[in-house]
Deep mutational scan, measured.
Amino acid sequence: KSEISQVFEIALKRNLPVNFEVARESGPPHMKNFVTKVSVGEFVGEGEGKSKKISKKNAAIAVLEEL
């Protein structure tokens, strides 16, 4: 299972809201860097990556460590 689906499963079991959002985009158009924030109830994680998908996955990994 992907880290993102694990976050949603845990949140569902604990009845917590999940929110993913792109917090920052930086860099030139051909080499963008994304920072995504995820919140699961009061737990927050942040991930960085060269694409929105990678930064979302890294944010999920960060919040899984707290859950």
Rank of each mutant, 00 (worst) to 15 (best):
K1V: 07
S2V: 02
S2G: 10
S2A: 06
E3K: 09
E3Q: 08
E3I: 14
I4M: 07
I4S: 05
Q6P: 02
Q6W: 03
V7K: 03
A11N: 03
A11G: 15
A11L: 00
L12A: 15
L12S: 14
L12N: 15
K13C: 07
N15W: 00
N15T: 05
N15A: 09
L16Y: 05
L16G: 01
L16Q: 11
L16A: 05
V18L: 06
N19P: 02
F20E: 04
E21G: 10
E21I: 09
V22H: 12
R24D: 10
R24L: 11
R24Y: 08
R24A: 10
E25G: 12
S26T: 15
G27P: 04
G27F: 05
P28C: 10
P28K: 09
P28T: 10
H30I: 07
H30S: 11
M31C: 15
N33K: 14
N33M: 11
N33F: 07
F34C: 04
T36Q: 04
T36D: 03
K37P: 01
K37E: 04
K37C: 08
V38I: 10
V38H: 03
V38G: 04
S39N: 10
S39H: 12
V40W: 00
G41C: 00
G41E: 03
E42N: 14
E42R: 13
E42K: 13
F43I: 09
V44P: 01
V44N: 10
V44T: 13
V44Y: 11
G45S: 10
G45W: 03
G45F: 06
E46Q: 15
G47R: 03
E48L: 13
E48Q: 15
E48C: 15
G49V: 02
K50D: 10
S51A: 04
S51L: 01
S51Y: 02
S51H: 00
K52R: 11
K52L: 08
I54R: 08
S55Y: 00
S55M: 00
K56C: 04
K56E: 04
K56D: 02
K56Y: 08
K57S: 05
A59T: 00
A59Y: 00
A60M: 06
I61F: 06
A62L: 02
A62Y: 01
A62S: 11
V63A: 08
V63M: 08
L64D: 04
L64N: 05
E65H: 12
L67T: 03
L67H: 07
L67Q: 05
